[in-house]
């Protein structure tokens, strides 16, 4: 990592991201040629094509990319926080908490921005619960934290089943969306992009400190890192990112787990590189998965969570089997 220029892989990833975004805009259940799309992008040509590209494809592709980037970065941060490559918002029950709150809000008839608020509340509550309960005599062991997270995730699972059981039938389809992870209902990608940009700007200056934190809190403190502040800071940012990702696309699993892990295998362990690389490749994965989801058996549409899990589970098992965890 020392001798190679760290910006090279990032430049490559930016290029791949642009290519993925453009590719996804050209794909859809209505087949448009490259020329159709490019003239529509320049606001020329058929009104219908302009509508398809500007009103349907671009917002959805943008939402997909931002969701993937948020989840991957949240996963990367949590893995540092817990010093455990198995940590991700999904495994730790943070997206579960967000889903339960959103479902509860739908149950009492809320919609729109209140749902985003509920998701954030749920994500934060869940993280506080996980981190609070896993502390004993002021010390948190990563194993204890992970176990607490897994158990709390199971608890949220039960709450979700309960809410689904008591919910009026007309609210069930909307609720299932949150649980499956689906970009079909993503109304606006802007909140996700704003949060992504904001969090990136906040977290990147600390990338070097995060490298130290990855060696353990005591070692980090001995090297002059403000561990208490940094851990809280990372924790809040990771919760925020998870919450926004959940409000945009529901709970999409495995992205936050698999992507940072793959990036570490390929690019090493420098967070200055891993964090932006995770964001970019997470964005690519979800964008690509969503493109598959909306075209592969069109007109039937699949939830994107199905595709990410189908890609994620075997990849994860493969990595686990190679003994890299």
């Amino acid at each position: 990592m020392l001798h190679r220029s760290p910006s090279m892989p990032l430049i490559l990833l930016v290029f791949v991201s642009c290519a993925t975004l453009l590719f996804s805009i050209t794909q859809g259940s209505v087949s448009l040629s490259i020329t159709d799309v490019s003239s529509a992008l320049r606001s020329q040509g058929s009104q219908l094509y302009q509508t398809l590209v500007w009103e349907l494809r671009i917002p959805r592709v943008a939402a997909a990319f931002a969701t993937g980037a948020l989840l991957s970065m949240a996963g990367a941060l949590m893995q540092i926080l817990l010093r455990n490559p198995l940590a991700d918002p999904y495994v730790l029950g943070i997206s579960g908490g967000a889903s339960v709150m959103v479902l509860g809000a739908i149950l009492v008839g809320a919609s729109g921005i209140i749902l985003s608020g509920a998701a954030f509340l749920g994500a934060t509550l869940s993280s506080l619960l996980v981190f609070g309960l896993s502390q004993r005599s002021g010390q948190t062991t990563p194993m204890r934290l992970l176990l607490t997270g897994v158990v709390i995730a199971a608890g949220w699972g039960a709450c979700i089943t309960l809410i689904l059981a008591i919910a009026p039938p007309q609210k069930i389809p909307g609720m299932l969306f949150w649980l499956m992870g689906d970009l079909a209902y993503a109304h606006s990608p802007w909140l996700a992009w704003v949060v992504l940009a904001m969090v990136s700007m906040l977290v990147m200056p600390f990338a070097k400190s995060l490298n130290v934190l990855a060696r353990g809190p005591l070692q980090a403190a001995a090297l002059g890192v403000n561990v208490v502040f940094l851990e809280r800071f990372v924790f809040i940012l990771a919760s925020l990112m998870t919450a926004i990702a959940v409000t945009t696309a529901g709970s999409v699993g495995f992205v936050g787990l698999v992507i940072p892990h793959m990036m570490r295998l390929i690019l090493g362990n420098d967070q200055r590189l891993i964090l932006p690389a995770s964001a970019l490749s997470g964005g690519c994965l979800v964008t690509f998965a969503d493109t598959i989801a909306r075209t592969v058996i069109a007109p039937e549409q699949l939830p994107v969570g199905v595709i990410t899990a189908l890609i994620g589970v075997p990849t994860f098992l493969f990595l686990l089997n190679k003994g890299r965890m």
Binding site: M1, L2, Q79, I80, R83, N84, P85, P205, A207, K208, S209, N211, V212, A214, R215, G216, P217, L218, Q219, A222, L223, G224, V225, R264, G268, N269, D270, R272, R324
Partner: peptide, 29 residues
């Protein structure tokens, strides 16, 4: 030098040794 090495995320020997320089280079991102 800690007695028990905390098992962190994966890192190479080089990366770990370089972290010793963190107190001097923390501001040099």
């Amino acid at each position: 030098l800690f007695q028990e090495h905390q098992d962190g995320l994966p890192a190479t020997v080089m990366e770990t040794v370089l972290l010793g320089r963190f107190p001097y280079s923390a501001s040099n991102w």
